[in-house]
């Protein structure tokens, strides 16, 4: 059994609505695997099926070699789950959140206490250990939720949008901690709609849209396959960016015309920009950058990821 999570033709329907529409996924031991996609793509629905709290409607799903429909509790005993929305007990202290949760896994009290102390140190919440959760900042709560997901020393950690809503500093702290986990050999499965997060953390990822997987590979490979090396972003003052599209023809392999800017996909950004100026198009602003997963997503779906 080479993959920890194995899904074939996995479907989740709510009534007549299909949230996950036949996806195939394999997550290997020790890797960080990402689900990338816009709102409503079906990321959380997939994560909840993997978390064994949501029975699949159709298809094959095996986790740690077991069947979630039959062995839910046994699988959950070896998973750590950080749900999209924190569901900490805000009336308990930070430490109590960890110790009481550890008990759900049958961990002896003394071990639970020791592990809570370790984990609080790991997520840098030791000073707040005995304060109530309610007044903590969003970033602190998120870190505590992550710590709680680690309390049973899980084989797989499921993280649903681990850094959404956090400020940049808090995000980097979370990334750094997740990176350490990965180095310790923990298998990470995460969802995100942040490109930089996916690029930072994921060895492999799938791009989801409308319940389907539209592409699957490592971040680098996806960018190479679905984008060019560099991107030029142009903003024109006119209301109608589209009217410039014609004048730009021939400069780039491909364009994307967005409501507020035009993206040119090119091998060499500076060359392209020089050509733009030669044609005297004088954009209000121009930016040359490296291609990212955002561009992959745009190419695959024709839409931006975060609106």
């Amino acid at each position: 059994m080479s993959s920890l999570i194995h899904a074939r033709g996995l479907v989740k329907r709510f009534g007549s609505f299909t949230a996950v529409d036949g996806i195939d996924v394999d997550v290997r031991p020790g890797e960080a695997f990402g689900f990338l996609g816009p709102n409503g793509a079906g990321k959380s629905s997939t994560m909840r099926m993997i978390g064994c709290v949501s029975p699949p409607t159709e298809g094959v799903l095996e986790i740690l070699g077991m069947d979630p429909r039959r062995d839910g509790p046994a699988i959950r005993a070896r998973l750590g789950v950080c749900p999209q929305l924190d569901n900490l007990d805000v009336e308990l202290t930070v430490r109590e959140n960890l110790t009481t949760y550890a008990r759900f896994f049958g961990i002896p009290r003394a071990v639970a206490r020791a592990r809570a102390a370790e984990l609080l140190d790991f997520v840098q919440l030791t000073e707040r250990a005995d304060s109530q959760v309610e007044p903590l900042s969003g970033g602190m709560k998120r870190r505590l939720t992550i710590a709680r997901a680690l309390v049973n020393e899980p084989d797989i950690v499921l993280l649903d949008e681990p850094t959404t809503g956090l400020d940049p500093q808090a995000r980097h702290l979370v990334w750094e901690r997740l990176f350490r986990l990965k180095q310790q050999g923990v298998t990470l499965v995460l969802t995100t709609h942040y490109m930089d997060e996916a690029e930072q953390l994921c060895d492999r990822l799938v791009v989801m849209d409308g319940g389907r997987i539209v592409a699957q590979d490592s971040p680098r490979a996806l960018i190479e396959r679905y984008s060019t090396r560099e991107v030029v972003e142009l903003r024109f003052t006119a209301d109608d960016q589209g009217s410039y599209a014609e004048k730009l023809s021939g400069i780039a392999e491909r364009f994307e015309v967005l409501p507020d800017r035009i993206l040119l996909y090119v091998a060499d950004g500076d060359d392209a920009l020089a050509e733009v100026h030669r044609r005297e198009l004088s954009p209000a602003s121009a930016l040359v950058r490296r291609s990212s997963l955002e561009d992959v997503f745009l190419h695959l779906t024709g839409r931006t990821l975060v609106d």
């Binding site: 839910g72 509790p73 005993a77 569901n87 949760y101």
Partner: peptide, 14 residues
């Protein structure tokens, strides 16, 4: 609101 039951359901509890 507090979603306490959902947190418990994610642990190996039935």
């Amino acid at each position: 609101w507090l979603k306490v039951y959902f947190a418990q359901a994610a642990a190996p509890l039935r």
